[in-house]
Design a protein around this nucleic acid. Structure first.
Lengths: 334, 334
DNA sequence: TTGTAAGCGTTATCAT
DNA sequence: ATGATAACGCTTACAA
């Protein structure tokens, strides 16, 4: 059953390919009777228009690429659903790529999207190395690009950002208010969103206390991070006098790891140790105790990014914008 | 900065486009010196080959589509990672589509993939409606197609399947062996994998007991399913004499919901109620108690599917195959 | 209302 | 070792 082309349809309906194209795209008047003939030929041949040919001639594929570090962190899932909920009704499809946190893969995937003539790219939490190298900034000159939670001061791009500053500070204030004196930050490597949190943490904590300690695990977004966070926190908790009594974790997976670390050592949460996560994914609600966390409004984050890139693709507004979204500390029982 | 084409490169390097193509694809001998000239022109112009044009002429895009009901269920994430781990090293890219469990979306996405000239499609847990309507079986005649966990007896397709029969039976045997007398099954709608589990459950339980009860929630794969499972189980537990003392849940999210239901009613797990999940995602390890569950070897599942579709795409082996994968009950503390 | 023909950016075929 | 030219399947002036 070979694929049929617009020519086959034209032959069967006894019209020219131009007419077939007009019937398909409904962009020019076609006599009702021929329209019906063409449509029945389309059905009979099970004709499907070749989007490669269409995209080639129109230099527009109605496609946006989404690059995410992982599909195992519900933060990303929610953002992606937010993007889709806005952009698909506008007639666009999305190509979802997950880099597994590897900067080389990220570059490969972007090249692939460019080669496929994607109309725009949204990157969630881009890899630090690719921002530092200037790759991302260059990229944004050649295609509509929006970064979600990957802000770096000197880099000219379109950003949709959580106000991580306010999130970290809110969490810190809460922990200090509850009497914690040794609050540490648990982060992963290779992401600017972690860097920013760390920076805010350091700035703030040094004004209030002389305890300042950052724990770092390798990859923060895959499932292994639960266990690596656990191990890292266990060894921190075992240090006699410098053991933390409060931990701010850069995402909920790490917070689960921290919680398990405490449990395995018989340390009471929140009695002896307070834990705060980031993202407010459902993960933070299903542990015992459930975990206090910073809500980042992921769906809205995704929708804003989609809206912004839609504007950039459909108008000549290519300005650099930075859109901030509030975060909100959700107090639970950790 | 307009996109440059192979013609621009040819002009700059002072050769024909044919030579440029040869340099890019390394498929014909080219003199070293011209090769260097061409490559430097490519760099200078920042040339990227247009895959639409290439795909158009080669009728092959080195692309496979993956259709999944959800990106919020770690079962799917793991399967997808398994697929990618096999197929990307072979030079293929993947287009990931999530239908949110909607059969209409599923059809749209498949059409989109066909129009984009994907070389093959892997569907994870396809929607029941689209199998029943014959859509899927027709589809498999026009493109290499592999279904993961969506077997239906009369439908001629390539399948990679968990032996759900053995999983359910193992779970049932375990619960009955532990003294449960009222074991119920908790499932979602619209998926054959649920149907199969229900069928096995009914067949088996009716031989051993006169208690047979199936609880069903709407969508089983998104985050809301935790809460809908909880509500459903609460109302089941409240029924005086017919309240279950064992629940087999069709995935780990539902199992978490069931666990929360028991907790909210002060029912002890596993003392008064035993719960078994499906999938062995990390979710089942982070609750308290941690949840016994049926491991489905998701990574291998994905790899087998990728391997099978790769064979179908690269050889003329288009036979119908059914590949089964063992499941394994993991006993924890629920 | 319909048709003819040029062209999108590649690869493939056949020359040289 | 290199080049000219015809495809691939569609859209879009321009004609009729």
């Amino acid at each position: 059953m070979k694929k049929s082309t617009i020519q086959d349809v034209a032959d069967l309906a006894g019209v020219s390919i131009t007419t077939v194209s007009r019937v398909i795209n409904k962009n020019y008047p076609v006599k009702e009777s021929t329209r019906l003939r063409v449509n029945s030929a389309i059905d009979k041949l099970n004709f499907r228009p070749n989007l490669l040919a269409k995209g080639l001639i129109q230099s527009c594929t109605k496609t946006i690429g989404i690059i995410t570090p992982s599909i195992e962190n519900l933060f990303f899932s929610e953002v992606i659903k937010g993007i889709d909920s806005f952009i698909r009704p506008m007639g666009y499809s999305t190509i979802l790529c997950h880099s597994e946190g590897d900067n080389k893969s990220e570059v490969d995937m972007i090249h692939n999207l460019l080669n496929r003539q994607a109309d725009g790219i949204i990157m969630i939490d881009p890899r630090k190395e690719n921002i530092d190298s200037g790759f991302i900034e260059d990229l944004s000159k050649s295609i509509p690009l929006v970064l979600i939670n990957g802000f770096y001061d000197g880099v000219k791009c379109n950003y949709i950002l959580n106000d991580a500053t306010s999130g970290v500070i809110e969490a810190l204030n809460y922990l200090l208010g509850e009497g914690c004196t040794k609050v540490t930050l648990l982060r992963g490597k290779h992401s600017y969103s972690y860097d920013i949190k760390e920076e805010v943490y350091r700035d703030f904590i040094l004004k209030k206390s002389d305890y300042c300690k950052v724990l770092s695990i390798d990859e923060g977004n895959d499932l292994k991070s639960v266990n690596s966070a656990k191990l890292k926190v266990i060894s921190a908790l075992k240090e006699k006098k410098s053991a933390p009594d409060g931990i701010i974790c850069c995402n909920d997976w790490m917070a689960v790891g921290a919680l398990h670390a405490a449990k395995s050592l018989g340390i009471k949460v929140p009695g002896d140790l307070r834990i705060i996560g980031f993202d407010n994914t459902i993960i933070s609600q299903i542990t015992e105790p459930d975990i206090s966390t910073v809500d980042q409004q992921m769906t809205i984050l995704g929708q804003l990014a989609a809206k912004r890139i839609y504007t950039m693709m459909t108008t000549d507004d290519h300005e650099i914008q930075k859109i901030f979204l509030e975060t909100k500390l959700i107090i639970r029982n950790s």
